[in-house]
Simulated assay, not measured.
Amino acid sequence: MRRLSVLICSLMLLFVLLLPGASKSKAASQSFQVVAVQHKWNPEVDYASPDAFKAKIDSIMQDVMGKVDPNIPTLVTFPEHIGLPMLFIDNDIDILRSATTFAEAIQNLIKRHFAAVSAFRLYYGVDWVRALFLERSGVMAKAYLNTFKEMAAKYGVYLVAGSIPMRAVNEDGTLVKDDNTVYNLSYFFGPDGHLIGYQKKVNLVPTEQYKDENGNYGLDLNAGTLEELKVFSTPFGNVAIAICYDAFHYKVIWELVKKGGEILVMPSANPKLWTKEQQSDWLNSAWLATRHPYGLKWFANPMMVGPLKDITFEGQSSLGVNWVIAPEGPKMNYMDLDPITGFLSIAPSKDQYEIVETRISR
Rank of each mutant, 00 (worst) to 15 (best):
K297Q: 15
I89W: 00
G66S: 09
S137Q: 05
M303A: 11
Y294D: 09
S98H: 13
F248T: 12
E213K: 10
S349M: 08
A300T: 13
I93D: 04
N184L: 15
R2L: 11
D178V: 06
Q107M: 09
P50H: 08
I106Q: 04
F232I: 02
N71T: 15
A27M: 13
N322F: 09
A326M: 14
M166P: 01
Q316G: 05
G342R: 02
L221Y: 01
G173L: 07
R97D: 08
D212I: 07
L195E: 03
V45Y: 10
K251Q: 15
T358A: 15
D172E: 06
N270V: 10
N238V: 03
I243D: 01
L4I: 15
G329H: 09
G261L: 03
H39T: 11
G224C: 01
R130W: 10
F102G: 02
A27Q: 15
K259V: 06
Y158Q: 01
E354A: 09
M304K: 13
H81K: 11
I346L: 10
L296H: 06
I196F: 03
V117K: 03
Q30R: 13
E80C: 12
S31Q: 14
V37I: 14
E104P: 00
S118M: 12
V176C: 09
L256I: 06
A55S: 14
K259S: 08
Q352V: 09
K111W: 05
Q30Y: 10
G138N: 11
P165Y: 04
G138M: 08
Q278Y: 15
N146A: 08
Y158T: 00
V126I: 08
R359L: 12
T181Y: 11
T101G: 04
A115W: 05
F120G: 01
F102T: 01
V34E: 04
D127C: 02
N108T: 04
F102M: 04
L19Y: 04
V324N: 10
P235R: 02
G66V: 03
M140W: 00
A242I: 02
Q30H: 13
L288A: 14
V169D: 03
S25A: 15
Q38K: 05
Q62P: 00
L109K: 12
E262R: 05
R112F: 07
G329T: 09
K177H: 10
A161I: 01
L308W: 07
Y123S: 05
G173K: 07
H292L: 11
S49L: 04
Q278R: 11
K211I: 13
T234G: 02
D63I: 00
K177A: 13
K251R: 14
V231R: 00
V76S: 00
L134R: 04
Q38E: 06
F114D: 12
